[in-house]
Amino acid sequence: MGRTLSVTKSGDLEILMTRSFDAPRTLVFDAWTKPDLVRRWFGPRDWEVVECEIDLRVGGGWRYLLRQDGGAEMLLQGVYQEIDRPERLVSLETNEDCDASEGQALATLTLVEHGGVTTLTQVVRYASERIRDAVLESGMERGVGEGFDKLAEVVATPERAGTR
């Protein structure tokens, strides 16, 4: 898998995303779970993470508030279902733009390292095919792709990521 984001439909309810990073998986895992690192890469280039809270424990939650250059805001949040550092995170994500019955998605992040290159695979399972397709049509692929490009920059060297 290359250094660009691959986004595909999987079954009727899932989106499968993969991307490789030139970094050890412990560093990629940290970039997903430490607020100071999440703020540096999460979201599209024209959005900024203005609030980032992470309670890294099963049953704990994460909450990111993003703000676009023009002032629009987006709130993303979830509750950790499984944590297996440094290879797996599972969280139940909620989207306040959807009703409660369809506004949840189960996101499973897996990190596999070979020779200093970490392949990230994220499977997001939605409550309905309609919601999954709406997410794909929303520009999600561009936003995630730009965020992952920023993540690659953050983890390019341990010094840049603030870990030594």
Results as ranks from 00 to 15, higher is better:
residue 127 A to Y: 10
residue 12 D to R: 14
residue 125 R to S: 12
residue 25 R to G: 08
residue 114 H to S: 14
residue 122 Q to A: 08
residue 41 W to G: 02
residue 6 S to T: 12
residue 146 E to C: 04
residue 129 E to A: 15
residue 49 V to M: 05
residue 102 E to Y: 05
residue 2 G to Y: 11
residue 47 W to V: 03
residue 132 R to D: 10
residue 113 E to Y: 00
residue 119 T to K: 11
residue 143 G to V: 11
residue 34 K to D: 05
residue 89 L to I: 13
residue 47 W to I: 05
residue 95 N to P: 00
residue 25 R to L: 00
residue 74 M to D: 13
residue 94 T to S: 15
residue 69 D to I: 13
residue 123 V to Y: 06
residue 67 R to H: 10
residue 122 Q to V: 12
residue 150 K to N: 09
residue 2 G to W: 12
residue 113 E to L: 01
residue 137 E to T: 01
residue 106 L to T: 10
residue 14 E to S: 14
residue 62 W to Q: 12
residue 120 L to Y: 09
residue 111 L to M: 06
residue 75 L to Q: 15
residue 56 L to P: 03
residue 116 G to V: 05
residue 66 L to A: 03
residue 46 D to L: 10
residue 101 S to D: 13
residue 66 L to R: 01
residue 36 D to V: 03
residue 24 P to V: 02
residue 8 T to E: 14
residue 120 L to E: 10
residue 146 E to A: 02
residue 161 A to F: 03
residue 152 A to M: 10
residue 116 G to H: 05
residue 123 V to M: 08
residue 122 Q to G: 01
residue 63 R to L: 12
residue 34 K to R: 13
residue 13 L to C: 04
residue 57 R to F: 07
residue 139 G to A: 13
residue 119 T to C: 12
residue 89 L to Y: 04
residue 9 K to G: 09
residue 12 D to C: 10
residue 21 F to M: 07
residue 21 F to S: 04
residue 93 E to I: 03
residue 13 L to E: 06
residue 137 E to Q: 08
residue 26 T to Q: 10
residue 158 P to A: 00
residue 138 S to N: 11
residue 110 T to V: 11
